[in-house]
Amino acid sequence: MAADRKVILVTGASSGFGRLTAHTLARAGHVVIAGMRATRERNAPAVEEIRRLATTESLLLSSVELDVQSQASADAAVAEIVECHSRLDVVVHNAGHMVLGPAEAFTPEQITAVHDINVVGTQRVNRAALPVLRGQGSGLLVWVGSSSSRGGHPPFLAPYFAAKAAMDALAESYAAELIRFGIGTTIIVPGAFTSGTNHFLHAGHPADEATAAAYDSLYGEIRATIDKRLPELVPPDADVQSVADEIARIIDLPDDRRPFRTHVDPSRDGSEVVSAVADRIRAEFYHRLGIEGLLPLNASL
């Protein structure tokens, strides 16, 4: 294996950011394993696309069954990767699920399920992958977050944004706990990309339809058109491929040059400024704790 070629697992790679990222990283020369669930059922076409692309372009690209809601599935996926490639260098935490509707109308069980996919799912993958990375004394976790975790939350997406904020907090704590093992962290923060992904197409909806309907008299038009209003906030030249390109750029940087957090935000909603201030404060906090290397105090944010 070439010295700069990495073995990379991308979760939630059947569509959207994950699919583009898997393809982009493979074309950059890495060994890429696209993790997705239902590889023999719903996502069989995605698996076939990966096989065809790998053959046509001579890419080191493959797929693996990975349901982030199952620890057994995460364990089996990582074990298969290590058996085939003898190592694992990078995990891209991309798997996620969006829901759309009044927050009140989602049952507690639905809120729990959203967190189970977007937050607990990363924990299952980490518990499978981190023993390998710690054993190697090297590795990188890339977390695909959301600019919403720093403010600017549109209405009727609360459960999803709450889960993304929780994932962001988990990523920050993990970063400090892993740096001494030689495992780096970068949080990728996409803005409001509304085309090129299946977020709205596959979005879940409230189970409590009666409560949801109670919002219609005052918010019905907004609810019905929010998937069309949000794109109006995004410049027409915004390209979802830029997220995959940024992930590839970060992975190819030397360990000591990778940013802790990087924004890919076509709307420039200001969240990157808030993040820069927060990361500067965090750098000083970790410095005082004696945890060096996570974010240099002279880092360009």
Rank of each mutant, 00 (worst) to 15 (best):
A158G: 03
P155A: 13
V142I: 15
P159F: 04
S138L: 00
H115I: 00
V119R: 01
W143V: 14
L157N: 07
T112C: 12
A128Y: 01
P131W: 13
R124G: 03
I111K: 12
G151Y: 11
R150T: 03
M167F: 01
P155H: 11
P155I: 00
R134I: 01
S138A: 10
L133N: 00
L133W: 00
S146I: 09
Q123S: 05
A163C: 01
I111D: 11
F161L: 14
N118L: 06
V142H: 02
F156K: 05
P154L: 09
A113F: 00
A113L: 04
A128W: 02
M167N: 03
V142W: 04
V144C: 01
I111F: 15
A163Y: 04
G135D: 05
Y160A: 08
I117D: 13
S147D: 13
S148P: 05
A166D: 11
G135L: 05
L133K: 05
G137T: 14
V120E: 02
T122W: 04
R150F: 12
A166H: 07
L130C: 06
R127Y: 03
L140C: 09
L140I: 09
S149R: 13
R124E: 02
S146V: 12
G145E: 05
A165G: 10
A162E: 12
S147C: 14
D116L: 02
V120Q: 02
G121W: 11
V114Y: 04
V114G: 10
T122A: 15
A165T: 09
Q123I: 15
R127Q: 15
A166F: 07
G139T: 10
G145M: 05
N126K: 08
H153Y: 10
A162D: 12
A166C: 08
V120N: 01
S146A: 12
K164I: 10
L130E: 08
L140E: 14
R134K: 15
L140Y: 12
L157E: 11
D116I: 06
L157I: 14
T122V: 15
H115W: 07
V132P: 03
I111T: 08
A162M: 14
G139I: 11
A113S: 15
V132Y: 03
A166M: 08
G145Q: 07
I111V: 15
S149Y: 14
S147Q: 14
H115D: 15
S138W: 01
V125R: 06
A129K: 07
Q136E: 05
L140K: 01
A166K: 06
R134S: 05
A129D: 01
D168R: 10
P154A: 11
I111G: 01
